[in-house]
Amino acid sequence: MSASAHAHEEHGEHISSLKSYLVIFGILLVLTVVTVGVSRLGLPSDISIMVAIGVACVKAFFVAGWFMHLKWDTRFNLLVFLGGFWFMLVFFGFTLTDLGSRGNLIEANDNFSQRADMGAKYAEPAHHVEGSGGHH
């Protein structure tokens, strides 16, 4: 961090050429076509979601880098922006860990009496009145 706020920070005065913006726009269009195409291939769902997020991240990289001038901005602003995603990933990670591992312990012990009653790991919610056997 500059020793004191007094030093004149080099403000992102960078002016990109019209051509570079159009090139970036072209890349984004191509990536959009790619992501649509990939989804047509019928990959198994967990792989296809990884690919979709991957392509979206690449597009995000281009938008943030060139359109949002992060390439020529101070390192700290880039850190601030990426820092936000760290907390988002923490939120996703811990919550999905919980959702994914509910009832593991009981199943891991193959507790028959428990399994018969539990039915699906997560009792399908009986949303219409004629309940699906479980409590409603």
């Binding site: 649509v36 989804s39 990959l43 769902s45 979601i49």
Partner: peptide, 9 residues
Amino acid sequence: LFPLLYLVR
């Protein structure tokens, strides 16, 4: 949002 909602198989 677009791929997650519209595309993902």
